[in-house]
């Protein structure tokens, strides 16, 4: 199983831990794309963690679209822990999507490093 070396994995105990602010800060610091990989809907050990994450990803999409960074740069995926090949496929898909979109437009315009 292989996936592109373009992604950096940040582990969280549950996607419910991922906050909207975490996603926005990534872009503020120059990330070209962010995707959240959670368990299958209905299979969350904490019941609604992945559903909360999904909402936050949509909130991030909306904000990024409005500030001119682009809502397509962020996405939510669901898969079970046994689906390694699908994980690799998602990584490839997302890498292709971000490459097509080009770099984060605020990169290079960073006036002040995010606090």
């Amino acid at each position: 199983m292989q996936y592109p070396p373009t992604i950096r994995i940040i582990r969280v105990p549950c996607t419910g831990k991922v906050d909207l602010l975490h996603i926005l800060r990534c872009f503020e610091k120059g990330a070209d794309g962010v995707y959240v990989v959670g368990c299958m809907e209905g299979d969350c050990r904490f019941k609604t963690g992945n559903l909360r994450a999904k909402k936050r990803v949509y909130q991030a999409k909306e904000i990024l679209e409005k500030v001119g960074v682009g809502g397509d740069r962020v996405e939510m995926f669901n898969l079970s822990s046994g689906e390694g090949p699908k994980f690799a496929q998602i990584a490839t898909e997302m890498t292709q999507r971000i490459k097509a979109l080009g770099p984060n437009p605020i990169k290079g315009k960073l006036i002040k490093k995010a606090a």
Partner: peptide, 26 residues
């Protein structure tokens, strides 16, 4: 506090993208 952080982050990105120098603190 959370909404302040989100708004500040969004505004920073917007103005950076516009190439406008702006200090935004929370």
């Amino acid at each position: 506090k959370k909404e302040v952080g989100i708004l500040a982050s969004a505004l920073r990105m917007y103005f950076m993208n516009q190439g406008k120098e702006m200090t935004i603190d929370e």
